[in-house]
Design a protein around this nucleic acid. Structure first.
Lengths: 196, 196
DNA sequence: TGTACATCAGTGAACGCGCGTTCACTGATGTAC
DNA sequence: TGTACATCAGTGAACGCGCGTTCACTGATGTAC
């Protein structure tokens, strides 16, 4: 099988390579040349699919947000009660961050993203819509619903996002047992979510 | 006043310049050469004070964490009741992030930090100790105190940290009124902190 | 108080490196006839 | 079914840029005597 001149689906291969790189070397290690190198293509080839690094990063973030939304929706679908669905989404949020830490951080590194790209914009709306709709469902009928729902949404989201970020940065270690870090972290998260 | 050969306190000047740069251009815009340029010194001079970029970033983070701890402690000192102290610390946490966004993000960009540096390690302990001690004080006497306190600490910290990060990345805009963003954000934070 | 000397902060030219970008090109694909 | 041609994905050499780092140096400071 000699290497053909045309790749077939270089765009998809570049995105996959970018994900590998970002999980291995972090967001700062992601370059157009590096991605091309990873798939064995010419260093100028990414230009044909993504204009520049911002384009590549934004398209990768779009892929990430769609997968993120899928993961949260699948988790919610396993429960009936709104509060259970919400907790499941929170767990899914953190699981995603742990499974794909580089990608997760890239998705929330706003400076590198062009949020006006249609694919990214739509994917972000999907992901955040899933979260906020689930919060609203868990609190419908509350008095002063609009304001309370916003506060609940902000709290649920901040809690779970802060937990994920602090965890990835190993800032939560003093609060964790010595054992298997991932399991302990999810146990602590459960305590946190089911606290009140 | 002709420019003297020796600066007087180049180290402090470099740190101050680094803070300006990071707040203006973001963490990725911080370079040894750039910092030297900002103070009008030779590009090789930072080597004398910080070995490399990691050194500079870590020392700047140490300055930041000390200021962060000061700010939180000052806020707590204005209240008597443990829960009020804790809420004040949460507000101070977010205020700090809004006032010095670049510095705040640098402080939590673990990849760039050498946490074994004594100055940084001590400053981090000060800041996080302030937070966790305050949580413990607000919950002493709870049943199953150790576990509950850890969960409370994780929740308070995650909430306030996630809020700050999401806010800086403009992810919370859909939940804010159109008006003055900073005031709205702090109002939303207050709703969130005093919710239950 | 003066002099000699070690120390070291700061200088500026030079280096190699990886990056993004440009450019003329080449090979493959698909469409028109 | 075959042929001509436009299109465009991918190539690889070349460019300029800013970066960190090295190096021999120079100017200022402080200490020993």
């Amino acid at each position: 099988m000699t290497k053909p001149y045309h790749h077939g689906d270089l765009r998809a291969a570049l995105l996959e390579a970018a994900e590998n790189i970002v999980n291995r070397d972090g967001v700062a290690g992601l370059t157009l040349r590096g991605v091309a190198r990873e798939v064995g293509a010419s260093h100028a080839s990414p230009k044909n699919h993504f204009d520049d690094l911002t384009g590549l990063v934004s398209e990768l973030a779009a892929v990430g947000f769609n997968r993120f939304a899928d993961h949260m929706q699948a988790a919610a679908a396993e429960h009936r009660a709104p509060q259970d669905k919400l907790n499941a989404i929170g767990r899914a949020y953190v699981e995603f961050a742990l499974a794909d830490p580089g990608l997760f951080q890239l998705m929330f590194r706003g400076e590198r993203l062009d949020k006006t790209r249609p694919a990214l914009h739509a994917a972000m709306q999907r992901a955040f819509g899933t979260l906020t709709a689930s919060v609203a469902a868990a609190h419908e009928g509350d008095p002063d619903a609009a304001r309370a729902t916003r506060a609940h949404a902000a709290r649920a989201w901040s809690m779970v996002h802060g937990f994920a970020i602090l965890l990835l940065d190993e800032r939560l270690n003093p609060l964790l047992d010595a054992g298997t870090p991932q399991a302990d972290a999810l146990a602590l998260l459960d305590d946190m979510l089911t606290m009140d």
